[in-house]
């Protein structure tokens, strides 16, 4: 992969998106993030998070599931915003944004989480459009007027700010754990340094999640774009050993070209179906329970 599209190049002094990444991931970014606990408030209420040990397990699990999924979606959105925008192609691009947003929908079974994700996305888009005005953010706002999912907006905002997909993924993974961590400090009165120690311990896992998210962008194997109703359902199995299907499969031929030319419209999005969809059944239950609880301090 080239470092332009994935940010892995080791340039002395870092890249142009580095400072923007700090702004984007900062909890002080005025985009409503401070009021989201990512399920932590309900877990505290139910007593499944009572101390720093519980919180550490909660954060690790959240990062491996929702964190990875949002990182991948953010990376995909960043890539689309960086490479997809060409004057006169707004219509195509709007379709692609809606498709990516639908991929986020399909990975969010809980309606409470979809609602929270769209609310956060809407608020972030409002803020990002004023901070980093860009045609991609405008198109996204028009394409998904009800508010795109937060990681989709985050990726588009990252591109507008000059970040690469890896940085977008890192910001998404980071906010997936810092929100609940801060909420737990407020709700349980945990020592803030203890909690930041937990976050420091998670740093390598955050990097790993961002790398995995970017890798998933070029590891496309599931090819849903053709209409399988028109082909034999076992067709795939005849072309290769059964079981070699899925994100860990070995079929490299259907992967989009790494670093493919900007504006390679038809290829764009081809890998999205295979992006990670790591589910967390407990987070789903927490989100729905939280929505029903009138006595809450956080949006999610």
């Amino acid at each position: 992969m080239d470092d332009r599209s994935h940010g892995d190049g080791h340039r002395p002094g870092g890249g142009p998106g580095d400072a923007a990444l700090l702004l984007l991931a900062d909890s002080r970014l005025p985009a409503g993030g401070h009021a989201h606990s990512g399920g932590a408030e309900e877990a505290v209420r139910l007593g499944t998070i009572t101390d720093a040990g519980d919180l550490a397990r909660f954060l690790r699990g959240r990062l491996a599931t929702a964190g990875l999924v949002t990182a991948a979606l953010a990376a995909a959105a960043c890539e689309l915003a960086r490479t997809g925008h060409h004057p006169g192609r707004e219509e195509d691009l709007a379709t692609l944004w809606r498709q990516l947003d639908a991929e986020a929908d399909a990975r969010t079974a809980s309606p409470a989480q979809r609602e929270a994700g769209r609310t956060q996305g809407r608020l972030l888009l409002r803020t990002a459009r004023r901070m980093w005005p860009s045609p991609a953010l405008d198109t996204l706002g028009v394409a998904v007027p009800e508010g795109a999912h937060h990681p989709v907006v985050l990726g588009a905002a990252a591109a507008a700010a000059g970040c690469v997909p890896y940085q977008a993924a890192l910001a998404a993974a980071y906010t997936a754990v810092t929100g609940p961590a801060t909420a737990a400090v407020r709700l349980l009165g945990l020592d803030p340094v203890t909690v930041h120690r937990l976050l420091a311990d998670l740093a390598p896992a955050l990097n790993d999640a961002a790398h995995a998210a970017c890798a998933s962008l070029i590891d496309s194997v599931v090819t849903d774009d053709a209409d399988p109703l028109a082909v034999d359902p076992c067709g795939d199995d005849r072309r290769r050993p059964p079981g070699g299907i899925g994100p860990d499969g070995d079929d490299a031929t259907s992967s989009p070209e790494p670093g493919s030319a900007p504006g390679a419209g038809p290829c764009r999005g081809a890998g999205w179906p295979a992006l990670p969809g790591h589910a967390a059944p407990a987070l789903d239950l927490l989100a729905e329970g939280h929505l029903k609880n009138a006595m809450k301090l956080f949006v999610s």
């Binding site: 499944t48 699990g61 959240r62 491996a64 059944p281 407990a282 987070l283």
Partner: peptide
């Protein structure tokens, strides 16, 4: 998986 097993966020 060590990251998710026993996590109150995943399977509790």
């Amino acid at each position: 998986d060590g990251h998710t097993d026993g996590s109150p966020a995943v399977y509790g």
